[in-house]
Design a protein around this nucleic acid. Structure first.
Lengths: 231, 231
DNA sequence: CAATGGATGATACTCAGTTTCATGACCGAG
DNA sequence: CTCGGTCATGAAACTGAGTATCATCCATTG
């Protein structure tokens, strides 16, 4: 896995030289120049110096050139969520969201080029939506598991998962549009907002500046800390 | 809408006799018998006694045979949302959600047949997801407009729209699976839950610096202090 | 050297969706 | 009745994505 060299055949998203990277480069270049629909797979393959067959062998479809490693991110999210219990649930969710967000941010300009495509090509926007729903499904699954089995609890899990993904998407989209200077801060705020919504109603007395805030909590300190961090 | 005769040419989803209805019937029958991927458009067209051309003229794509009138529902939702202001916002959202839900429920067995397909054929599930996101976008747009323009308010709109759609989807899915006896009641409960989450942020003024935070916990003060220090 | 296995390329095929053109039914005007 | 229009339909060819098959090449290994 971690062996070096140009063994990126297993990791099409890698940056090093290799057929996969050449294909990605050619694809983004042609998409930007001529448009997504106007660029055929044959165009990409020949521009990258590989055969059509190899293209479909490496990326299963034309759309997948744009979205390289969703499966890997999804696995990372699941890993983070799995390493958690009720007590650290809120923290786990926030962490998992950060995993996703900062993965994209780490891509830098590539992520923005992708956004330029997804925001103009309906087929790609839809593909992105679908992968987003897989995150939501994953979050829902874990959040639900942390609750009791009542319908209200299940519904709460569903709503919270939707909110979590929406919060992430908003921050990410703002960053992609360069409307967001500090994504760390914004994702913290956004997740704090989510947690404030879904945490058990903390009997917040309207507080004048300098007032005493009493937090009734059955939660563990991590949860409290998460909320405080947002103030 | 309710006029009789066979003037369903403008309404492909209508039930009366006519080419569109024949196509829908043939499509569902063949999909159920042989599977979605195994049924070609030619199969459907010839089974319905029309030409391939007519099929694509009436429904733009193979997937659209399954989802007839999303645009109409979307328009109905928008109509309901548009007829509302901040004061009646919560009611408008709940009403709009009910419009969608009961539209599907009114379809009765057809909706359940569709569900059987969408829950087994990935391409159709994705198509459904996408139309769901259009509802979400619509709700977000209106809910955001009801707020002040702050980022927190915008985010709240985004989260609430996501939650609203998620709540609807949950109730609808339960009804489709026949796990839900009284969809009226369930959607009311679900929307009440959404409103309870999003409605009145009970004036939670962020505590000014120097506020006192009281945490009830089993842990001793040293542990608490240590945790807080790490914020 | 021979054999094996993995990666690649070439080719042909299916099918969705688009475009173009021809046909035929209906309809009002002369 | 006939001409000239429109509109729904059908027919056929075309593009392009995705799949399957087979041949080839190359590197390792015995």
């Amino acid at each position: 896995m971690t062996q070096s060299r140009d063994d990126d055949r297993r990791a099409p998203a890698a940056k090093g030289p290799g057929p996969a990277a050449a294909i990605v480069d050619a694809a983004f270049r042609l998409f930007n120049e001529f448009g997504y629909d106007e660029t055929s797979v044959d165009d990409i393959a020949s521009a990258a110096g590989v055969s059509r067959s190899s293209f479909f062998r490496l990326f299963g479809s034309k759309e997948m050139v744009i979205f390289p490693d969703h499966d890997a991110i999804l696995a990372a999210v699941e890993e983070r969520l799995a390493a958690s219990t009720q007590k650290s649930a809120i923290l786990a969710v926030s962490d998992a969201v950060r995993v996703v967000l900062f993965h994209y941010i780490a891509e830098g300009p590539l992520a923005r080029r992708r956004y330029q495509l997804t925001s103009t090509v309906p087929a790609l926007r839809e593909r992105e939506l679908i992968s987003g729903s897989r995150y939501q499904q994953l979050f829902r699954q874990y959040i639900s598991a942390w609750g009791d089995g009542t319908e209200e609890s299940e519904r709460r899990g569903e709503l919270m998962a939707a909110a979590v993904v929406a919060a992430h998407n908003r921050v990410l989209r703002r960053w992609l549009r360069e409307e967001c200077e500090d994504p760390h801060m914004e994702i913290d705020q956004a997740m704090a907002q989510v947690n404030a919504l879904f945490a058990p109603p903390p009997a917040t007395t309207p507080a004048a500046p300098g007032a005493i805030v009493v937090v009734r909590t059955d939660q563990d300190l991590e949860a409290v800390a998460e909320q405080l961090r947002s103030l």
